[in-house]
């Protein structure tokens, strides 16, 4: 449960509340990006970033190659499928403060 999964930020839904939408293996889901933003890299600048997503929070910014390798590792471990499935189920109902429509 500690491995998380890499995804790409495809939308900043609420910069003030540090909410974004991430895409992981074709599934979109609302996440919180408070842990990866600071003055040097504000919320607006996160669009397009690859991040390590853990239980709905971006925990670390990663590069694209690292993202690809991590995803492959998780797929081989059988963790990626479970994680994406959990995201898919929860993505049906948008999370905190996010208006997906």
């Amino acid at each position: 449960m500690c491995l998380g999964i890499p995804g790409r930020i495809v939308e900043i839904s609420d910069a003030a509340q540090k909410l974004a939408v991430v895409e992981v293996g074709g599934v979109r889901r609302a996440i919180n990006i408070a842990f990866i933003v600071d003055e040097a890299h504000p919320a607006q600048a996160c669009l397009g970033d690859w991040v390590l997503v853990h239980v709905g929070f971006a925990m670390s910014r990663i590069d694209e190659e690292e993202a690809a390798r991590t995803l492959e590792l998780l797929t081989q471990l059988g963790e990626a499928q479970a994680e994406i499935e959990a995201m898919r189920q929860s993505a049906a109902e948008p999370a905190v403060g996010t208006r997906l429509s």
Partner: peptide
Amino acid sequence: VYSPLDALQ
């Protein structure tokens, strides 16, 4: 739930 945020929702 996938995230504690889903619980809050």
